[in-house]
Design a protein around this nucleic acid. Structure first.
Lengths: 209, 209
DNA sequence: TTACACTAATCAATCGTTTGATTAATTTTG
DNA sequence: CAAAATTAATCAAACGATTGATTAGTGTAA
């Protein structure tokens, strides 16, 4: 069946996503990926053309799902700007845990100075999400809800930077927070509530008049 | 002269620091590093034993200088907790620009899940810096200067995370901020003042009663 | 001479990729 | 329908290139 093929490709992508995010692009060999996925090495090239093609496919699979999640939020006129921010924080707090291995991979690659198209694609993708945030913040200012002198780009850097710091340096954040960042239950019961609550308080204090 | 040897080693370390931070450990080949440094490939092993030894040496050279910078701050009783925080932010804002290529390398390596001793050493080193911040924040609470329900680990994550986000993903932050993050003059005249001012305002709103 | 600094050449290992052969599945043909 | 032809999926083996590392030898200064 065709279904099996898709499942198999998907399985390879799952494994590749994990291995890439652990070892980085250069550190993850095709032998390791194929080995962990339980498929023949040649299948990677058969399906994805090349190692870079596989890497790209890992991202492209996710990009679509990220695309239109946020767009509805910014254009909803019935909510106050701050309520939108709270919704945004809620969503982003959930994304932290669900896709933390992909998020790690994403920002790892963004940090590299590869001349690839990939880097540009990723940047544009992220900028779309960021644009929604910008819109919410600007609307909040013009509506008189937020202070006029808030630093929008920096707020965005804080929002994503705080999250990245926690999930990208688990050794540090585990020691800081007092529980294991890599443990799924701890993430669900401790990290998610904590980061949501903190971020709301932090931004409430900074943004609201 | 022995001086020449030291200068040469130092030159190699400078180059290695930059190349490692650009390409990552696995992506940076010894041929590339030696080529950019203008030395024979074998000199890397001659001086540093191995590629990993070179990598380690890049860090060890910096670690010492980071060690005792912050310690004086926490134990100065004459300053208020908030003044200490401001001093901390000033210092950290300067560090952003001066060592941004090393900082990138540092957190790149911290993100990797290598079982190395290096990762543990780096974590311990960073935790020492973090401990000073923790002390300032705790003292501020007991002194009645800061709110009692502030989330100390999260504040630290925000402080370092915001900085890391900006310097580790220059493609994103350049687009966000509207100027080139990699341009030294822009960093000096724009980024440094902006990040200092923002971080003070942000934390003032969140920390102070 | 002796110890050190340095180089070109070379090493085995591993890299990503390609190959030719084999099997499984599908389509076409009689 | 059944046989033949075609395509897709999979594999072990090997490819050339590159990796980090080592060697044997050259030059140099004390």
């Amino acid at each position: 069946m065709d279904k099996d093929k898709i499942d198999k490709k998907d399985h390879i992508l799952d494994v590749a996503e994990r291995v890439f995010s652990d070892k980085g692009f250069d550190g993850a060999s095709t032998r390791l990926i194929s080995g962990e996925a339980g498929v023949n090495m040649a299948m990677l090239n058969y399906y994805f053309g090349s190692k870079e093609g596989l890497f790209l496919a890992v991202f492209q699979r996710k990009i679509a799902s990220f695309q239109n999640i946020l767009h509805n939020l910014g254009n909803d006129g019935s909510m106050s700007a701050w309520t939108k921010m709270e919704k945004y924080i809620e969503m982003y707090g959930d994304k932290v845990v669900n896709n933390n291995c992909f998020q790690k991979l994403l920002y790892q690659e963004m940090g590299m100075n590869r001349g690839n198209d990939l880097s540009n694609n990723l940047r544009d993708m992220l900028l779309k999400n960021v644009a929604e945030l910008e819109k919410i913040l600007k609307d909040g200012i013009t509506a008189g809800e937020f202070k006029e002198d808030i630093d929008i780009p920096m707020v965005i850097a804080t929002l994503y930077g705080t999250k990245n710091y926690i999930i990208n340096t688990p050794m540090m954040s585990s020691a800081l927070l007092g529980f294991d960042i890599n443990d799924e239950e701890s993430i669900e019961t401790k990290l998610k509530p904590q980061i949501k609550s903190y971020m709301k308080n932090l931004l409430k204090a900074y943004l609201l008049k």
